[in-house]
């Protein structure tokens, strides 16, 4: 089987599942989880973009011998940032959901109807 199919395919499958959960979920926590699964899929996709055939991790622990055959380090650095940002978003979302549960007494999104014209 093709490596691209496995890596890209599974990452994108996670993204699809995340979007599906987020748009069909009725429970607020479920929606948050959907967004989180989507983010995870995206992060996996970005890391797999960085792979270069035959490359190893960009850590030269045998220094002065530098081998040229390494994977792209930039997507890894970017994903690190993206993961932290995802965590922050999730924490904020959880806090809002906890307050919603306290004030509305429910976590069902269909019951959040304060703001309708």
């Amino acid at each position: 089987m093709d490596a691209g199919l496995i890596f890209y395919g599974s990452a994108i499958f996670l993204m699809v599942m995340g979007v599906f959960i987020a748009i069909t979920g009725r429970h607020l926590i479920k929606i948050l989880l959907g967004i989180d699964v989507f983010d995870t899929g995206l992060n996996l996709l970005i890391v797999s973009f960085g792979y270069i055939n035959g490359g190893t991790a960009p850590i030269f622990s045998k220094y002065p011998n530098i081998f040229k055959n390494v994977v792209d380090p930039v997507p890894q650095a970017l994903v690190l940032t993206a993961i932290v940002i995802g965590v922050a978003e999730m924490a904020m979302g959880l806090a809002i959901v906890m307050q919603i549960k306290e004030k509305f007494g429910t976590c069902n999104i269909a019951k959040l109807k304060e703001l309708k014209w």
Binding site: D39, E89, G93, F104, E114
Partner: peptide
């Protein structure tokens, strides 16, 4: 209050997906 929380949650939901696509 109820309104603020609901507004905040909706903003968060759309904002999170939107910014992920921006990253992509």
């Amino acid at each position: 209050d109820k309104k603020a929380l609901e507004g905040g949650f909706k903003y968060m939901m759309i904002g999170a997906i939107g910014s992920s696509l921006y990253l992509l």
